[in-house]
């Protein structure tokens, strides 16, 4: 079985987020008053905070995860790591070096089945940008190099997961070959996972974890993204079903026309696999 390696300080795992920073990301996402860029940045920042929470113990933070965030389209034809510091960072470095923290209120259990409000600090590691074109191929090259280097150095790692959030088609070529190259980089525990989240500006019906191209719109780009999304491993099918998604055999790690709810749930499901393997 794949996707069962234990994640520990001696055998950590890599999570790569790729975020489209093209101009059209400034449009609102259905389900929110905010732009796609804002909601995608919030979702990734929150997820980094979740990883930090899971790795935090009484004596400090344990480096079970290394994180990279690759932005593309903040400048024409450009993709690069956008977190302050190294392109790939241990979770402890992120915990100790956020851009800033913001006071927020969240709800926690009151111990009697209800919820109460408590203060907490939301970590921010990068701000939203919506500026130029969609050089997804450049971003995939960057991700491929990170993943390849990671797996060569740690052949028994829980397979890296690359989560790509975009609202449009690549403006620098066909991403298919590079994406397949990434999905074929394998550790002894399985192939690298490539997840694609297509975020939408229109309130059309989202198509989540499709198992075939049938049902996707007659849109070449939607089919390319389907083709370059990893088959959903069995464990992840379980997580998706827990969130009431109707999953068929052959489902791909892909959502088309995601609105805010699907965006957040997609990232949550994608990161639950590695979180569940923490030692």
């Amino acid at each position: 079985m794949s996707y069962e390696a234990e994640i520990s300080r001696t055998n950590p795992s890599l999570v790569v987020f790729m975020i489209d920073q093209s101009r059209s990301m400034s449009h609102k996402i259905p389900g929110s008053d905010n732009s796609k860029a804002r909601e995608a940045a919030d979702a990734i920042n929150r997820q980094i905070g979740e990883f930090i929470g899971r790795c935090t113990k009484a004596d400090g933070i344990r480096d079970y995860f290394y994180i990279s965030v690759i932005g593309y389209g903040f400048r024409a034809g450009t993709a690069q790591a956008i977190l302050r510091g190294e392109p790939v960072q241990p979770i402890s470095a992120l915990a100790n070096n956020p851009l800033r923290t913001e006071k927020r209120v969240t709800k926690v259990s009151d111990g009697e089945g209800g919820l109460i409000d408590v203060d907490y600090e939301l970590g921010i590691w990068f701000d939203p940008v919506a500026a130029s074109d969609t050089p997804m191929v450049h971003a995939l090259k960057f991700a491929r190099d990170l993943v390849k280097d990671w797996v060569e150095k740690r052949p028994d790692t829980y397979p890296p997961i690359v989560i790509n959030i975009s609202d449009g088609q690549a403006t620098d070529g066909d991403p298919t070959d590079l994406a397949k190259e990434i999905m074929n980089i394998a550790s002894t525990d399985g192939n690298t996972l490539l997840w694609n989240c297509h975020v939408s500006s229109s309130p059309g019906t989202p198509i989540t974890f499709p198992s075939s191209e049938e049902g996707l719109p007659e849109d070449k780009y939607a089919r390319i993204l389907f083709d370059i999304s990893s088959p959903l491993p069995e464990q992840y099918m379980g997580y998706a079903r827990e969130m009431s998604y109707n999953i068929s055999e052959g489902a791909r790690s892909y959502v088309y026309n995601a609105q805010l709810e699907q965006l957040i749930q997609f990232i949550d499901i994608g990161t639950r696999g590695p979180s569940g393997q923490m030692q």
Partner: peptide
Amino acid sequence: SVEWGALPWFVKNKVTG
């Protein structure tokens, strides 16, 4: 048993619960 005030921000986030 815990020195609450001295905890870094991300530990404080977690100890609330």
